[in-house]
Design a protein around this nucleic acid. Structure first.
Lengths: 208, 208, 208, 208
DNA sequence: GATGAATGAGGTTTCATTCAT
DNA sequence: AATGAATGAAACCTCATTCAT
């Protein structure tokens, strides 16, 4: 709706940004920040090097915008899944696990980028780049924790562990299974394994 | 004992290697491979740049030797802990979880390096550098899995999930709690949290 | 004619290449490959160091392109002179001797470069750089030999020596006189001396 | 005789110098001055690097001493051959040509070194290194010239060309044939070819 | 006197960034 | 507004030379 209202110039600009992002995502996720040059991105995006600098102040800004965009998209999906109130707490968490799998498995190159940023490899890039994403990630964990907390309050779950740690646990478990899937999709099907894992998880914390 | 038998020259050489490693570990773990220059390492280690190249063929070789050394030290401890037969399967896994915490919490800068290498950020460095460590990691996971398998055979654990996935799960959970501890040691004490988590884990898979 | 048709960009690029070549020729011929740094060439050519690497992949490639260019130019002249069919065999060889002198005496710095490459000093640079030039030189010697052979067949020359050796002989004699001229142009005028030498040469092999 | 009188220390020192020279000659003649490192020479000569610097002030001094030694040995032989008064002028020059071939063909690695120094490749090394050898070479050419001059005075040779140029000519011709021999000894036997060439040379300048 | 570990100046090369066209 | 040639700081690495043992 709104986009159609945008002047052609503006629309074209956004499209160009998208093309740059697409090229950059491919390259960064495959080779890492320091092994990709601005020339490489320019060539892959079919723009002149100068054009990249019209859109982004420098390499770091491009990288940050890219990662932020991916993270926003990703967290948006996760938040949508977990906010879906058409279900109880168990359902909301199952929703999140499924959505996480879907987003990642459809955007494999995003995975590496995302893990690099949330799992400490981002120190490869200048300090401070990652704080926003860390914040977004932290916020999401808090929301996940609040779902567990709500479940505990409703006496649907035992309070074995601090809800925040339950959130951390389920997040790290899903990550682990996504990594396995990434390494060998046929051998390690995410949905099946995660399903079993979830069952075990809830059986454990469920109140009978 | 044996070390004292080494000729002085040899001992000094090893000591120097150690000093280089110490400087490199600090810098790499803080800033990442590509943001540390050989000059920086030389300066921190108080050697001339040429001396570094007497000890290591090039930057990559230095990095690889450093990471391999850390990984060996780390896996050595883990293997010792898990191989300890003075206990049943539960005890062996508890041992591993505790040992992992101890090694990491005493070598915080090793953590970042280690996660960078096992969790995919190593693509920042030339391909192939990480295969040996990946292999070591994989071998350890197999051993962990075999402990679970043995517990299942002895009917101590239910077979809810493939033993390999149990290994992956417990490894990823301990990692997650180590990360939390790393970010805020006081707020997130590893041992306590992991203890609760372990209890929950074993209650779940234990056969009554 | 044709050059004017080239787009400005293209012409400028060629001009810049030429400026780099000119600076490099001066420096290499004066100091030798290993005593000239890329920075030196860049400074002399009034370009930034990076610009050199836009034009040539590396130092060796620049050197090779320079030497090949000079060699092509040189052999082109020699071949034109010797292929000139407006004369008998004696005339064609006289043409070659004169042309060789002209090219060299107008491009003194080319001489050192050329002799370094055809006379074995090229082992200073990585192996294989010189094979193309050696081939070009060898081909020329063969052509020179074929002129002698033709003269022998036409019974204009005696067959004292294998035509190839006659070619080698006349080539080495002209080189020697060019060297003398290079050391002291006034004292050792190439044309005069070579004329006498030629006379002596042909008197000797001529059939009366 | 005299050598036996030298104290052991002195004799050993000379022997060591010889070993260094032998290693250096092999390496320099094969790879060129700039592609041979002092470490390489030390290793091949089985000395410590420091020892080399006890014998020679620096790399250049070692190279210069080596080349001078070779040149002295070479010119000594040539001078002996040409000074042999048991023959007329033709015989003395024949002697020189034969001796030159013998010395070179028994010391092939000397050839490259020698040509590098007399034929301009020495500009690869710092200026001034070569002047002494150039002088020695020049002196020899003068002596060769004087033999021709003497032959002309005795009316054995015609005066076609300045005796100095005759000397230059015969020297360059022998060099050329030595080069051919070096490239393919079986295909281009020096003695045979040079014999024919000499015959032709003297028939030409001989007075009947 | 011999040794060889240590030194560091200086070489080659890369690549993020600028700016005239 | 887009281009891409030019820039030059800074990276990696070599090797002639020194000097404490």
């Amino acid at each position: 709706m709104e986009e159609k209202r945008l002047p052609r110039r503006e629309r074209e600009k956004i499209a160009r940004r998208g093309e740059i992002f697409a090229a950059a995502l491919d390259l960064f996720s495959e080779k890492g920040y320091h092994n990709v040059s601005m020339h490489e991105i320019a060539e892959k995006a079919e723009f002149a090097i100068g054009t990249l600098y019209k859109f982004f102040e420098n390499k770091e800004a491009l990288y940050k915008a890219l990662v932020m965009g991916q993270a926003l998209k990703f967290h948006d999906e996760l938040n949508k899944a977990i906010d879906d109130i058409c279900g109880d707490e168990v359902q909301r968490i199952r929703n999140y696990v499924r959505a996480k799998g879907e987003v990642f498995m459809q955007n494999t190159s995003m995975i590496r980028l995302y893990f690099a940023e949330t799992r400490g490899a981002s120190f490869n890039i200048k300090a401070g780049l990652d704080t926003e994403i860390q914040k977004m990630y932290e916020d999401f964990l808090q929301k996940l924790a609040s779902v567990f907390e709500s479940g505990i309050k409703k006496k649907r779950f035992q309070k074995i562990l601090d809800p925040y740690y339950l959130a951390v646990a389920i997040d790290s478990l899903t990550n682990a299974f996504l990594f396995l899937w990434l390494g060998n999709p046929e051998k390690h099907p995410y949905s099946e394994n995660v399903d079993i894992m979830m069952k075990m998880f809830f059986e454990n914390i469920a109140l009978r």
